[in-house]
């Protein structure tokens, strides 16, 4: 059975096309692009909230997008136990909706960070099944507010429920710091309790094609399909 997916576009999304290509190339299945003002969502296996600056990131990153018309449908999709992936701005939107815990605050150095970063999986879930323990993935980040923060109580919950999907790490020969943006416990991506919703700051859709510097981003879609 073919894998069906959809990408939501908000005004200011700028990775929606990248996400569409990522899904088309890797799933080989039906891929829909949904405008934020739509009020229905086709029945799909995976929805991606893409990166960008939805509504200019005015007010707070992701805050305005979390009130868009389509969001009710996105929440229903998640409650139906189907997959929802928020990348970068999408991760910020998921925390604003409340589907994911914590918040993404400004990077430690208070500067936008656009470079390759290295991550590895922390706890197993359906998004990272195909990734080996301790395997280091090279995937670009591009964000100003990617510094994951939550209180101790929440952090303990995230750990106890094994909701931490990815953490930043040092790459071989790389000049990059271990924790590039200052996230608490170097968290790069978390899931909800049921582990069908993942938010992550790195952009797997920029690291999958042969001409990309790395193809490690494939592993996420491969995990979901397998």
């Amino acid at each position: 059975m073919s894998f069906k997916s959809a990408v939501i576009t908000f005004p200011g999304s700028n990775c929606d096309r990248d996400a569409l290509c990522y899904l088309k190339d890797l799933t080989k299945g039906e891929v829909h692009n949904i405008w934020h003002e739509e009020t229905s969502l086709p029945k799909v296996d995976l929805v991606i909230l893409p990166g960008g600056f939805s509504f200019g990131d005015y007010l707070r990153s992701g805050a305005m997008a979390s009130k868009s018309k389509i969001i009710d449908e996105v929440v229903k999709h998640a409650n139906d136990n189907r997959y929802l992936l928020g990348i970068c701005n999408g991760f910020q939107i998921l925390t604003e909706i409340g589907l994911l815990e914590g918040a993404l605050i400004r990077n430690k150095k208070l500067k936008f960070l656009g470079k390759n970063c290295f991550i590895k999986k922390k706890f197993k879930n359906n998004f990272n099944l195909s990734i080996k323990d301790n395997q280091i993935l090279q995937i670009p980040v591009a964000h100003n507010e990617g510094n994951f923060y939550c209180d101790t109580e929440t952090l303990n919950l995230l750990k106890n429920n094994e909701q931490i999907a990815f953490e930043y790490c040092k790459g071989e020969f790389s000049n990059t710091e271990e924790n590039i943006n200052g996230s608490i416990e170097a968290i790069a991506g978390i899931t909800n309790k049921k582990k069908n919703v993942l938010g992550m700051m790195p952009h797997p859709e920029r690291a999958y094609s042969d001409f990309h510097q790395s193809q490690d981003g494939r592993l996420i879609i491969e995990s979901l399909i397998s």
């Binding site: 700028n14 096309r17 990248d18 990166g51 936008f112 656009g114 591009a142 952009h203 920029r206």
Partner: peptide
């Protein structure tokens, strides 16, 4: 400080 990989 620049995004150089957007658009894929």
């Amino acid at each position: 400080q620049y995004d150089s990989t957007v658009m894929g």
